[in-house]
Structures are given as C-alpha cells and as structure tokens.
Write a protein that binds this DNA or RNA. Structure first.
Lengths: 113, 113
DNA sequence: TTCTTTTATCGTATCTTTACGATAAGATAG
DNA sequence: CTATCTTATCGTAAAGATACGATAAAAGAA
C-alpha cells in the first residue's frame, strides 16, 4: 500500500506540494532568511557553521534541513576547503513565488465566475 | 526528545510553516482548486461526496485531508442534513497569499542590500 | 421503526520527518 | 604525519503523515 500516491496527481500539483513541503518547517524558513541576509550580491557566502549558530538545533539537524532545501533547489551549496558555503538560488525562489502566486491567484479568479 | 521544536522559533515562522504544511500534499492542492471551481459567489456549496469523486483517494483519506485544510482555516465546513458542505475561506487564503508573498519578497529585498 | 445515505472517526499498517549523538571524510594547521 | 576543524552521513528513536477498511453517528427515506 503506497503511502503517497503522487502518480495520481498532475506534475504541477506535485511540484507545488514539494515546494510547500520544503517551507513546511520553521527552521527552514529561518535558514532561508538567514541566507538572504548574509549572502549579499558582493559574493559573500554563508558558512554552514554560521547557520548552525543561529538556528536553535543541533548541527546534524541543521545539515538535514539544508539538504532538504538543496534538494528542491531553493539553495545552492559549494565546498570551500573544510567548509560548506550556502546561498539562496534566486531563480528557484522566483519560480516558487510565481507558482504560489499563480495557484492562489487562479483560485481567486475562479471565485468570480 | 521533542520531534518538532516549534517553541524555539518565531510565531510568524511557525504559522507560515503550518500554512506551507497544509499545501504540502497534491491532494490538498487539488481539493482547494476543486472547491474554488465549484463554489461560486452564488452560494453554491461543494458536498464532500463530490470531492471524493474527483480526488483519486478513498473517502476516509479525503476526509482526513479536508480536516487538515479546515484546521489551518483554509476551508470552512457546514453541515447540511446528512451532507457536509465545504467552501474556501477566502480571507485565510488572502492572508496566506500575503504571508508567502511577503516572506519571499523580503528575502529578495535583502538581496539588494 | 427500519433501511439507506452520507461523512467523520477509529484502528491499523507503513512510510516519512524530525532530532541528536556519534562517526566518517576531507581539508588545513602544527 | 598527527592533530584539529568542519560538515555530511549513519544509526536510532519517537512522532507525524498517509492510506484504507470498517464502523459509528446523524439525517432522511420507505
């Protein structure tokens, strides 16, 4: 018995649900905000350890959350010697914004018919 | 050992995460779209059984998804005899739209500083 | 009243998520 | 080379999510 029958739904709905799932934990919300505040257009990056200091969870747990954000493409990670540097993928973020906006916007459009 | 340490995060972040969680399943996405298409401003409501026919899941499972959407306030439910009628809570939906928009918008603002 | 219809809830099985300590792996420092 | 630092992954435990059959509960029909 399958636990999540994703095959039964449209790819767009599955994708939107995956994005929502990535945002469905306050730690990941906080991580995204931290990255946005620290990683300016000057190329300054955010080291994993910096994030761990800000998020009130253990290092292993923060690493798991970072992995999940990376899997949906909301953040990118590069290796710098012994460190891991993370930054927001602005392109994916814009797409996410559009997908949420279009979804809710379309619902509101339907209301008027 | 608590499984989700929500106390450690801001209420706004927890609330946004809860909303995201409610959208984190394609069936709930599809349910919201179904309700938006069927429940016009003429007061026409959407009976539970109608939703069950559209969503490719068992009746008990659809009922669970409806419950989750109701818990976060995205839909309202009223009882009409033996039937349950559901409709979108447009106010909550607008708030959700604003919260997602503001969150992502603020991230993008931070980028420019 | 009895039967049917409708839907929520219960019970259960399984998979996923969350959390953390411990450890491995890779790079740098001494 | 050895020690240290940094981070990902492993192992594990507990809670949550997902799915469905069965059942209860409430209303209406016969």
């Amino acid at each position: 018995m399958p636990i999540v029958k994703t095959e039964e739904f449209s790819k767009a709905d599955v994708k939107l649900a995956e994005l929502a799932q990535a945002l469905a934990h306050p730690a990941r919300i906080a991580i995204l905000r931290t990255l946005a505040n620290w990683c300016g257009p000057d190329g300054s990056q955010c080291v994993c350890g910096d994030i761990v200091e800000v998020i009130p969870l253990a290092q292993a747990t923060v690493s798991q959350h970072l992995k999940k954000l990376k899997e949906v493409g909301l953040i990118d990670g590069t290796i710098d010697g012994p460190r891991s540097c993370y930054c927001i993928n602005w392109e994916t973020l814009s797409k996410a914004e559009a997908m949420f906006g279009n979804f809710i916007g379309n619902l509101q459009e339907s209301k008027k018919t």
